[in-house]
Protein backbone atom coordinates (compact mmCIF):
# COMPACT_ATOMS: atom_id res chain seq x y z
CA UNK A 1 0.00 0.00 0.00
CA UNK A 2 1.22 3.50 -0.82
CA UNK A 3 2.05 5.73 2.13
CA UNK A 4 -0.46 8.33 0.82
CA UNK A 5 -3.25 5.73 0.80
CA UNK A 6 -2.42 4.74 4.38
CA UNK A 7 -2.36 8.40 5.49
CA UNK A 8 -5.73 9.06 3.84
CA UNK A 9 -7.23 5.93 5.41
CA UNK A 10 -6.03 7.02 8.84
CA UNK A 11 -7.44 10.52 8.26
CA UNK A 12 -10.81 8.98 7.31
CA UNK A 13 -10.80 6.87 10.45
CA UNK A 14 -9.90 9.89 12.59
CA UNK A 15 -12.83 11.86 11.16
CA UNK A 16 -15.13 8.80 11.41
CA UNK A 17 -15.70 8.70 7.67
CA UNK A 18 -16.64 5.20 6.55
CA UNK A 19 -14.56 3.68 3.75
CA UNK A 20 -13.79 0.33 2.10
CA UNK A 21 -10.11 -0.38 1.40
CA UNK A 22 -9.77 -2.58 -1.68
CA UNK A 23 -6.46 -4.37 -2.25
CA UNK A 24 -5.57 -6.40 -5.34
CA UNK A 25 -4.05 -9.54 -3.84
CA UNK A 26 -2.01 -10.22 -6.97
CA UNK A 27 -0.48 -6.79 -7.60
CA UNK A 28 -0.77 -5.21 -4.13
CA UNK A 29 -2.45 -2.18 -5.71
CA UNK A 30 -4.89 -0.54 -3.28
CA UNK A 31 -7.72 2.00 -3.48
CA UNK A 32 -10.13 3.64 -1.06
CA UNK A 33 -13.80 3.23 -2.03
CA UNK A 34 -16.37 5.58 -0.50
CA UNK A 35 -20.13 5.27 -0.15
CA UNK A 36 -22.52 5.73 -1.76
CA UNK A 37 -21.03 4.91 -5.20
CA UNK A 38 -17.72 3.21 -4.19
CA UNK A 39 -16.13 4.38 -7.44
CA UNK A 40 -12.49 3.39 -8.01
CA UNK A 41 -9.98 2.42 -10.71
CA UNK A 42 -11.02 -1.18 -9.95
CA UNK A 43 -14.30 -0.59 -11.78
CA UNK A 44 -17.99 -1.38 -11.39
CA UNK A 45 -17.59 -5.00 -10.19
CA UNK A 46 -15.46 -3.81 -7.31
CA UNK A 47 -17.98 -1.06 -6.57
CA UNK A 48 -20.86 -3.54 -6.37
CA UNK A 49 -18.85 -5.88 -4.13
CA UNK A 50 -17.79 -2.98 -1.90
CA UNK A 51 -21.41 -1.85 -1.59
CA UNK A 52 -22.40 -5.33 -0.40
CA UNK A 53 -19.43 -5.54 2.00
CA UNK A 54 -20.36 -2.12 3.38
CA UNK A 55 -24.01 -3.08 3.81
CA UNK A 56 -23.19 -6.30 5.66
CA UNK A 57 -20.17 -4.76 7.43
CA UNK A 58 -18.17 -7.80 6.41
CA UNK A 59 -14.59 -7.70 5.18
CA UNK A 60 -13.36 -10.47 2.89
CA UNK A 61 -12.50 -11.74 -0.58
CA UNK A 62 -15.64 -11.63 -2.76
CA UNK A 63 -15.95 -14.42 -5.31
CA UNK A 64 -16.41 -14.02 -9.04
CA UNK A 65 -14.64 -10.68 -9.57
CA UNK A 66 -12.46 -9.92 -12.59
CA UNK A 67 -9.49 -9.52 -10.23
CA UNK A 68 -8.69 -10.98 -6.79
CA UNK A 69 -9.66 -8.24 -4.34
CA UNK A 70 -9.61 -8.10 -0.59
CA UNK A 71 -12.18 -5.62 0.73
CA UNK A 72 -11.59 -4.29 4.23
CA UNK A 73 -14.60 -2.43 5.63
CA UNK A 74 -13.83 0.49 7.93
CA UNK A 75 -17.25 1.43 9.30
CA UNK A 76 -17.50 4.44 11.59
CA UNK A 77 -17.48 3.35 15.25
CA UNK A 78 -20.76 2.30 16.81
CA UNK A 79 -22.36 4.92 19.03
CA UNK A 80 -24.02 4.62 22.40
CA UNK A 81 -26.43 7.31 23.52
CA UNK A 82 -27.01 7.11 27.27
CA UNK A 83 -29.84 9.15 28.74
CA UNK A 84 -29.16 10.01 32.37
CA UNK A 85 -25.88 11.01 33.99
CA UNK A 86 -26.39 8.54 36.83
CA UNK A 87 -24.18 6.09 38.73
CA UNK A 88 -24.64 3.33 36.16
CA UNK A 89 -23.60 5.73 33.40
CA UNK A 90 -20.36 6.49 35.25
CA UNK A 91 -19.44 2.82 34.88
CA UNK A 92 -21.09 2.23 31.49
CA UNK A 93 -19.48 5.16 29.65
CA UNK A 94 -15.84 4.07 30.11
CA UNK A 95 -16.67 0.38 29.57
CA UNK A 96 -18.51 1.14 26.33
CA UNK A 97 -15.65 3.38 25.20
CA UNK A 98 -13.21 0.49 25.74
CA UNK A 99 -15.49 -1.75 23.69
CA UNK A 100 -15.19 0.73 20.81
CA UNK A 101 -18.32 2.86 21.15
CA UNK A 102 -18.48 6.61 20.82
CA UNK A 103 -20.46 7.47 23.94
CA UNK A 104 -22.70 10.51 24.50
CA UNK A 105 -24.56 11.11 27.75
CA UNK A 106 -27.68 13.24 27.62
CA UNK A 107 -28.92 14.85 30.82
CA UNK A 108 -30.43 18.31 31.12
CA UNK A 109 -29.94 18.19 34.90
CA UNK A 110 -26.62 20.02 35.29
CA UNK A 111 -26.13 18.74 38.85
CA UNK A 112 -25.83 15.20 37.53
CA UNK A 113 -24.01 15.74 34.28
CA UNK A 114 -20.79 17.37 35.44
CA UNK A 115 -17.41 16.96 33.82
CA UNK A 116 -15.98 16.05 37.22
CA UNK A 117 -18.25 12.99 37.38
CA UNK A 118 -17.69 12.09 33.72
CA UNK A 119 -14.10 12.88 32.80
CA UNK A 120 -13.50 12.66 29.08
CA UNK A 121 -17.10 11.72 28.24
CA UNK A 122 -19.15 13.78 25.80
CA UNK A 123 -22.04 15.35 27.72
CA UNK A 124 -25.14 16.90 26.19
CA UNK A 125 -27.14 19.16 28.51
CA UNK A 126 -30.12 19.70 26.25
CA UNK A 127 -33.50 18.03 26.59
CA UNK A 128 -33.61 14.55 25.07
CA UNK A 129 -35.95 15.42 22.20
CA UNK A 130 -33.59 18.18 21.02
CA UNK A 131 -30.47 16.15 21.72
CA UNK A 132 -31.79 13.07 19.91
CA UNK A 133 -32.82 15.17 16.88
CA UNK A 134 -29.29 16.50 16.69
CA UNK A 135 -27.53 13.17 17.35
CA UNK A 136 -29.75 11.36 14.81
CA UNK A 137 -29.33 7.73 15.96
CA UNK A 138 -28.83 5.30 13.07
CA UNK A 139 -28.40 1.54 12.57
CA UNK A 140 -25.02 1.76 14.31
CA UNK A 141 -26.42 3.34 17.47
CA UNK A 142 -27.58 1.93 20.80
CA UNK A 143 -29.89 4.06 22.96
CA UNK A 144 -30.18 3.42 26.69
CA UNK A 145 -32.34 5.37 29.11
CA UNK A 146 -31.37 5.31 32.78
CA UNK A 147 -33.09 8.21 34.57
CA UNK A 148 -36.38 6.51 35.62
CA UNK A 149 -37.94 9.91 34.96
CA UNK A 150 -40.60 9.70 32.22
CA UNK A 151 -40.14 13.39 31.43
CA UNK A 152 -36.56 12.64 30.39
CA UNK A 153 -36.64 8.97 29.33
CA UNK A 154 -39.85 8.92 27.29
CA UNK A 155 -38.93 11.59 24.71
CA UNK A 156 -35.62 9.79 24.14
CA UNK A 157 -37.36 6.43 23.70
CA UNK A 158 -39.88 7.95 21.30
CA UNK A 159 -37.03 9.39 19.23
CA UNK A 160 -35.17 6.06 19.34
CA UNK A 161 -38.27 4.17 18.16
CA UNK A 162 -38.43 6.54 15.19
CA UNK A 163 -34.87 5.54 14.23
CA UNK A 164 -33.07 2.38 13.09
CA UNK A 165 -31.15 2.14 16.40
CA UNK A 166 -29.93 -1.47 16.69
CA UNK A 167 -30.61 -1.55 20.42
CA UNK A 168 -33.00 0.33 22.68
CA UNK A 169 -33.00 -0.34 26.41
CA UNK A 170 -34.69 1.27 29.40
CA UNK A 171 -33.79 0.91 33.08
CA UNK A 172 -36.63 0.10 35.44
CA UNK A 173 -38.43 -2.79 37.10
CA UNK A 174 -41.01 -4.89 35.23
CA UNK A 175 -43.72 -2.75 36.83
CA UNK A 176 -42.03 0.49 35.75
CA UNK A 177 -41.56 -0.94 32.29
CA UNK A 178 -45.23 -1.96 32.02
CA UNK A 179 -46.26 1.59 32.95
CA UNK A 180 -43.79 2.94 30.37
CA UNK A 181 -45.21 0.72 27.64
CA UNK A 182 -48.73 1.82 28.56
CA UNK A 183 -47.69 5.47 28.09
CA UNK A 184 -46.05 4.63 24.75
CA UNK A 185 -49.18 2.75 23.65
CA UNK A 186 -51.19 5.90 24.37
CA UNK A 187 -48.69 7.84 22.30
CA UNK A 188 -49.49 5.52 19.38
CA UNK A 189 -46.71 2.92 19.48
CA UNK A 190 -47.91 -0.58 18.64
CA UNK A 191 -46.76 -3.88 20.15
CA UNK A 192 -43.98 -4.32 17.58
CA UNK A 193 -42.54 -0.92 18.43
CA UNK A 194 -42.85 -1.57 22.16
CA UNK A 195 -41.05 -4.90 21.77
CA UNK A 196 -37.98 -3.07 20.47
CA UNK A 197 -37.40 -1.66 23.96
CA UNK A 198 -35.44 -3.95 26.25
CA UNK A 199 -36.84 -3.56 29.73
CA UNK A 200 -35.67 -4.32 32.29
CA UNK A 201 -32.45 -3.40 30.51
CA UNK A 202 -29.48 -5.78 30.33
CA UNK A 203 -28.75 -9.50 30.41
CA UNK A 204 -29.82 -11.39 33.51
CA UNK A 205 -26.56 -11.96 35.35
CA UNK A 206 -27.76 -11.06 38.84
CA UNK A 207 -26.19 -7.61 38.59
CA UNK A 208 -26.45 -5.47 41.73
CA UNK A 209 -23.84 -2.71 41.76
CA UNK A 210 -23.83 0.06 39.14
CA UNK A 211 -20.74 -1.48 37.51
CA UNK A 212 -22.38 -4.91 37.33
CA UNK A 213 -25.51 -3.41 35.79
CA UNK A 214 -23.29 -1.62 33.27
CA UNK A 215 -21.71 -4.99 32.40
CA UNK A 216 -25.14 -6.57 31.89
CA UNK A 217 -26.21 -3.68 29.63
CA UNK A 218 -23.00 -3.74 27.60
CA UNK A 219 -23.27 -7.52 27.25
CA UNK A 220 -26.81 -7.26 25.88
CA UNK A 221 -25.84 -4.43 23.52
CA UNK A 222 -22.88 -6.54 22.32
CA UNK A 223 -25.14 -9.52 21.64
CA UNK A 224 -27.36 -7.33 19.47
CA UNK A 225 -24.48 -5.68 17.67
CA UNK A 226 -22.93 -9.05 16.85
CA UNK A 227 -26.19 -10.74 15.91
CA UNK A 228 -26.12 -13.20 18.81
CA UNK A 229 -29.10 -11.90 20.79
CA UNK A 230 -31.77 -14.16 22.24
CA UNK A 231 -35.29 -13.26 21.12
CA UNK A 232 -36.77 -10.50 23.32
CA UNK A 233 -38.80 -11.62 26.31
CA UNK A 234 -42.46 -10.78 26.26
Amino acid sequence: MKAETLARLNADRATKRGVVLATDLASGEAALLYPPDFASPFGPQAAAAAREAWRSERSGKPEGLDRPLFLNVFAPPARMIVVGAVHISQALAPMAAMAGYDVVIIDPRRAFASEARFPGVMLDFSYPDEAMARLAPDRGTAVITLTHDPKIDDPALIAALGSEAFYIGALGSKKTHAARLARLAKAGFDAAAQARIHGPVGLRIGAKSPAEIAISILAEVTAHRRGAAEPAEG
Binding site: M1, A3, L6, A7, L9, N10, R13, T23, L25, G60, K61, F70, N72, M98
Partner: peptide
Protein backbone atom coordinates in the same frame (compact mmCIF):
# COMPACT_ATOMS: atom_id res chain seq x y z
CA UNK B 1 -5.19 0.11 25.38
CA UNK B 2 -3.13 -1.37 22.57
CA UNK B 3 -1.72 0.83 19.85
CA UNK B 4 -3.33 1.13 16.46
CA UNK B 5 -1.24 -0.72 13.82
CA UNK B 6 -2.33 1.49 10.91
CA UNK B 7 -1.34 4.64 12.79
CA UNK B 8 1.92 3.05 13.92
CA UNK B 9 2.72 2.15 10.29
CA UNK B 10 2.06 5.73 9.17
CA UNK B 11 4.15 7.18 12.01
CA UNK B 12 7.07 4.82 11.37
CA UNK B 13 6.96 5.58 7.64
CA UNK B 14 7.01 9.33 8.31
CA UNK B 15 10.13 8.77 10.45
CA UNK B 16 11.83 7.25 7.43
CA UNK B 17 11.66 3.66 8.67
CA UNK B 18 10.94 0.70 6.40
CA UNK B 19 7.46 -0.62 7.14
CA UNK B 20 5.30 -3.55 6.10
CA UNK B 21 1.70 -4.27 6.91
CA UNK B 22 0.17 -7.72 7.43
CA UNK B 23 -3.60 -8.16 7.14
CA UNK B 24 -5.80 -11.20 7.79
CA UNK B 25 -7.72 -11.61 4.51
CA UNK B 26 -9.44 -14.96 5.12
CA UNK B 27 -10.06 -17.40 7.96
Amino acid sequence: MSEDPLRAAETWKSQGRKVALATVVAT
